[in-house]
């Protein structure tokens, strides 16, 4: 009875996201067709590349891990009434912190904790500016992303560079790497860390006082204040928890992605996850459990894109087009109503 009610509450957002995905796929097919590619062939290789083999599935899940974590950063913000786009920069810091700390403490837990901690710390300036000086978080987090980019680039090039390979930083020492779940693939414990994080965040947001206070502050700050909740405190917690998951995303990326286990030149291999996470969060309806599925979907698109390029000769960028269409479709409010209305009219 309870469960049934709860599931009913989820039915609509899930249906809306599924519909958005279908629209993305269909419009994507049209775009492919107009661009002179065969949509069928492209999608065939997309699915083969991402889901039809153990390797494909492993790649899909591996790609989803950082997306799930950065999506959660955005989702916690959104649920607290904040538009936190600071995950991008925090990922760089998380990755760098893991590399630095594991040079001294050669243990995966130490690396992950380093990512977690630096994520929490790096979230504080934006949080403090927001709460005490009213600086809008979109402005501050975008600026901090650039500070993070150049600071970490400098660390990568000038301090923690790899003497044997000028194109990357020092690698994570073998004993501090996250063990692979399937040998010969890049699916590591980073995926498990992402799933666990999503579950923990779900519990925090929906089953603790703190989560109740965060959600109340997000929905109605005046009611929160009236209800004895300090909305400022909520905002700071939201930034900090969000920073932690983004930091973890960065740490997991370098600690769990063979073969380099390092940050590559121009931060190329840790770049873009923070912004992609925003889309994942939207498709997952800013809900940690929805984000797991949305993250895996985006992971699959990204994993299958390579096969699509190799066999159907469709450029990788086409995948970004499809992702974009899906996100726009999700963002259209009342999308489902739009589609359901003609049917309902028949009933009445």
């Amino acid at each position: 009875m309870n469960l049934k009610n709860e599931l009913r509450g989820y039915a609509k957002p899930v249906a809306e996201s599924v519909l958005a995905i279908l629209i993305g796929v269909l419009v994507g097919a049209l775009v492919l067709w107009f661009s002179g590619y065969s949509p069928l062939e492209a999608y065939y290789w997309l699915i083969v590349g991402s889901l039809a083999s153990t390797d494909g599935i492993a790649e899909t899940l591996a790609k989803s891990a950082p997306l799930i974590l950065t999506a959660i950063t955005f989702a916690i913000g959104a649920r607290t009434g904040l538009f936190n786009v600071g995950a991008e920069g925090t990922v760089y810091f998380g990755a760098m912190a893991a590399i630095i700390v594991t040079q001294y403490l050669q243990n995966p837990i130490a690396g992950l904790l380093a990512g977690l901690l630096i994520g929490a710390l790096w979230a504080l300036p934006a949080a403090v500016l927001k709460v005490y000086r009213g600086v809008h978080e979109v402005i501050s987090t975008i600026m901090f992303n650039w500070i993070a980019f150049f600071l970490v680039s400098w660390l990568a090039v000038s301090v923690y560079y790899n003497p044997k390979d000028p194109n990357s930083t020092l690698p994570i020492p073998p004993s501090a790497r996250l063990p692979l779940l399937i040998k010969g693939t890049s699916l590591s414990w980073a995926f498990i860390v992402a799933i666990l994080s999503a579950i923990i965040v779900f519990i925090v947001m929906w089953h603790t006082k703190l989560g109740y206070e965060l959600r109340t502050s997000g929905q109605n700050p005046r009611a929160a204040e009236y209800g004895g909740i300090n909305p400022k405190r909520s905002a700071i917690w939201s930034f900090v928890i969000g920073g932690m998951t983004a930091g973890l995303a960065g740490a997991g990326l370098v600690m769990g992605t063979p073969p380099s286990y390092a940050i590559t030149q121009g931060l190329a291999n840790v770049h873009g996850y923070g912004f992609d996470g925003i889309g994942v969060s939207l498709v997952g309806r800013n809900h940690p459990l929805g984000i797991i599925f949305a993250g895996i979907l985006f992971g699959a698109l990204s994993a299958g894109a390579t096969a699509m390029q190799q066999h159907a000769h469709v450029p990788l960028e086409m995948i970004k087009v499809i992702e974009g269409i899906i996100i726009i479709a999700v963002a259209v409010p009342g999308l489902l109503d739009l589609f359901a209305r003609p049917f309902r009219r028949g009933e009445a």
Partner: peptide, 17 residues
């Protein structure tokens, strides 16, 4: 605007404060 959080459930509203 103050006494209730309209989007949240009766249950969640019943313990505000």
């Amino acid at each position: 605007h103050m006494g209730l959080i309209l989007e949240m459930s009766v249950m969640e509203n019943s313990i505000l404060g």
